[in-house]
Design a binder for these strands. Structure first.
Length: 258
DNA sequence: ATGGTAGCATCGCTA
């Protein structure tokens, strides 16, 4: 099974690019973030015509997440699992696809270290762990894929000194990553690329950052042990960031022999 | 040089 995550920065604006990419990438499961659509507008896209079952959770304008699957899609959960304080925004959707419990997540940006949104981000990541504890087990095949809005290590950003005092690299954010990985998650890209640095999944639209190689690796596919053991490779498709009207994020793709 | 671009419910916010 091939699974990918992609923050598309408006599925309406990215419709043609996403449809093209679905065909060439041969993904079986696709987690989308920032669809910026209502559920009604999403249904009108009729992505079923490309062979996918899918589930979407969005209110329009901002956020919005989806899971598309060619290997089944059951037990859909929008928002956090019951028992966890619900989120007021559409940032997580979960479904079982091909025997794997898959969540598509769009972690809050945080905006600035002294902003309320940063506290919302940290709390959201705490609730994500609570969600996993309620919804599933680290011994089961589980994937959390999405725009995490945190670079796990200094080598995952183009210039750590330039980012001093910024979100996405703070100790408190990275402590949340550690919590998720302590629960049982492994970053599949890092698992397969132990020594590499300078590989990114997001580049600011401004200032020619993509062409200057100024990006961050903030989109992850996390898997539990059964997923890691079955995983064959994981790549970031930076070609999808090229050309006309790209998203500012590239897809992350993993091959799982399950 | 504190800029720049893209998307949205567009003149202000979010990323």
């Amino acid at each position: 099974m091939r699974i990918a995550t992609w923050n598309v920065n408006s599925l309406r604006a990215r419709r043609e690019r996403v449809i093209e990419w679905i065909a060439e990438s041969e993904v079986d499961v696709l987690c989308l973030q920032e669809t910026k659509m209502t559920d009604e507008a999403y249904q009108a896209l009729d992505l079923g015509q490309f062979g996918f079952e899918s589930a979407h959770y969005g209110f329009g304008q901002w956020n919005g997440v989806a899971i598309l699957s060619k290997v089944g899609l059951t037990d859909v959960q929008v928002n956090f699992a019951s028992g966890v304080e619900p989120d007021h925004e559409s940032r997580i959707i979960t479904a079982t696809c091909g025997g794997i419990r898959v969540s598509s997540v769009y972690v809050p940006n945080g905006r600035a270290l002294d902003h309320d949104h940063y506290q919302y981000k940290l709390g959201w990541l705490d609730r994500l762990v609570a969600h996993l504890e309620v919804d599933t087990s680290p011994d089961a095949p589980v994937i959390v894929a999405g725009d995490i809005n945190i670079a796990p290590e200094d080598r995952d950003v183009y210039d750590i000194d330039a980012l001093a005092g910024s979100t996405h690299v703070s100790a408190a954010e990275r402590a949340r990553i550690a919590n998720i990985e302590r629960w049982g998650m492994t970053d599949l890209f890092r698992h397969h690329h132990r020594e590499e640095s300078g590989i990114y999944s997001w580049w600011d639209y401004r200032n020619g950052d993509f062409h200057k190689g100024r990006g961050m690796r903030i989109d992850l596919i996390w898997g539990t042990r059964p997923v890691v053991e079955a995983s064959r490779w994981c790549i970031i498709d930076r070609n999808a960031r090229k050309g006309t009207q790209p998203s500012d994020h590239a897809p992350v793709v993993a091959e799982i022999a399950l």
